[in-house]
C-alpha cells in the first residue's frame, strides 16, 4: 500500500447505472450518518442541554483539568515511544529476515484482537501485588499497578499496531533503490536514513501518530482496570466521563466526552487537510 490515494480524486472506473449509483450514495450517507453523525449530534445536544455556560463550566473544575492533564501525560510519551520503536520494528520486519519474524508479525496484531479490559487484567497478573513481577517491583520500590506507569504500559499495549501497520507497507513499496543510490554517492547509513528514508515515510509517520494519539486518548477499559480510577490520581478524561455519568452529572460527562471526541476529530481532519495542501502544491 502506497500512501493512501485521496478519496476525492478517485474516480469510478466504469459508471454504474444512475439509480444504482444514487442508491449506493444513499446507503453510504445513511450508514455514516447513523453510525457516526447521529451519536455525535446526540452528544452535542446532551452537552448543551443547560446552555453553553454550563458546558464550559465543566472545564473549570480542577478534577476535570487533572483528568485531561493525566490523559495527555499518558498519551504523549506513548506517541513518542511508538514513533521510535514502531519505526524500528517496521524497518526490521520489512528489511531484515530474522528467526521469529513471522511470529512477531502475527503478535503485533494481537492488541486489535484482545479486549482492553483483558489487557488490564493481564498487566495486573504481572504487576499486581500478587503478580509475577511483584517481588522485583517490591525490591526496587516501584509502583506500576494503580499508578501512572501501569496506565502508560496498558496504553502502549493497545496502541502498538498502529505505527507499524502504517509504516511497513510504505517501506515495502519504497524499496531500497534510492537508498542504494545514496550509498553509492557516499552517504553514510545515518544520512541515508535521515535524508532519504524518513522523508519517504513522512505520511505514514503522520497517520501513525494521529491514530496512535487518537486511540490513546480514548482508551478506557485497560486504564480503568490497571489504574483503579482513583479520583485526582489515576483518573483520565475517559474515566472522568464514566464517573460523571455515575454521579448523574450529565452535562459535565457529555461536555468532557465531546471535548475528547472533537479533539480526535480535529486531529484526523487536520492531517487530511495538510495532506490535501501538499498534493495541490505538486
Amino acid at each position: 500500500m502506497t500512501p493512501r490515494p485521496s478519496l476525492a480524486s478517485a474516480r469510478p472506473v466504469a459508471r454504474p447505472r444512475r439509480w444504482l449509483r444514487r442508491a449506493l450514495v444513499a446507503v453510504v450517507l445513511l450508514y455514516v450518518g447513523v453510525l457516526i453523525v447521529a451519536p455525535l449530534a446526540g452528544l452535542l445536544h446532551g452537552a448543551l442541554a443547560d446552555g453553553l455556560g454550563a458546558a464550559l463550566a465543566t472545564f473549570r473544575d480542577p478534577q476535570v483539568q487533572r483528568a485531561f492533564g493525566l490523559t495527555l501525560r499518558i498519551s504523549l510519551p506513548v506517541v513518542v515511544v511508538q514513533a521510535v520503536f514502531g519505526t524500528a520494528v517496521a524497518w526490521m520486519l520489512v528489511r531484515d529476515n530474522f528467526p521469529g519474524k513471522r511470529l512477531i508479525n502475527g503478535l503485533i496484531d494481537l492488541p486489535f484482537a484482545v479486549s482492553p479490559v483483558v489487557v488490564g487484567y493481564m498487566l495486573l497478573l504481572l504487576f499486581g501485588r500478587q503478580g509475577l513481577l511483584a517481588p522485583v517491583l517490591q525490591a526496587l520500590d516501584i509502583q506500576v499497578a494503580f499508578a501512572v506507569p501501569g496506565m502508560v504500559l496498558a496504553t502502549l499495549f493497545v496502541t502498538l499496531p498502529f505505527m507499524i501497520r502504517e509504516l511497513a507497507p510504505i517501506l515495502k513499496a519504497f524499496g531500497i533503490q534510492q537508498e542504494q543510490a545514496a550509498a553509492t554517492l557516499g552517504a553514510n547509513g545515518w544520512t541515508t536514513f535521515w535524508r532519504i528514508t524518513l522523508p519517504a515515510l513522512r505520511w505514514g509517520f503522520v497517520y501513525g501518530i494521529t491514530l496512535t494519539l487518537a486511540r490513546a486518548l480514548g482508551e478506557f477499559g485497560a486504564v480503568l482496570v490497571i489504574g483503579g480510577g482513583i479520583q485526582g490520581r489515576t483518573e483520565t478524561a475517559t474515566l472522568y466521563v464514566y464517573r460523571a455519568l455515575d454521579e448523574r452529572q450529565y452535562v459535565s460527562a457529555y461536555s468532557a466526552a465531546l471535548a475528547l471526541g472533537a479533539f480526535s476529530l480535529l486531529l484526523v481532519l487536520g492531517t487530511e487537510f495538510l495532506r490535501r495542501r501538499e498534493e495541490k502544491k505538486r
Partner: peptide
C-alpha cells in the same frame, strides 16, 4: 483520594495492590 467501583471489583483491586 477516592475511588468508587463495584464492591467485588474494588475488593479485588485492593488485594492486587490498590
Amino acid at each position: 483520594e477516592e475511588s468508587y467501583l463495584g464492591s467485588g471489583a474494588q475488593s479485588r483491586a485492593i488485594v492486587e495492590g490498590f
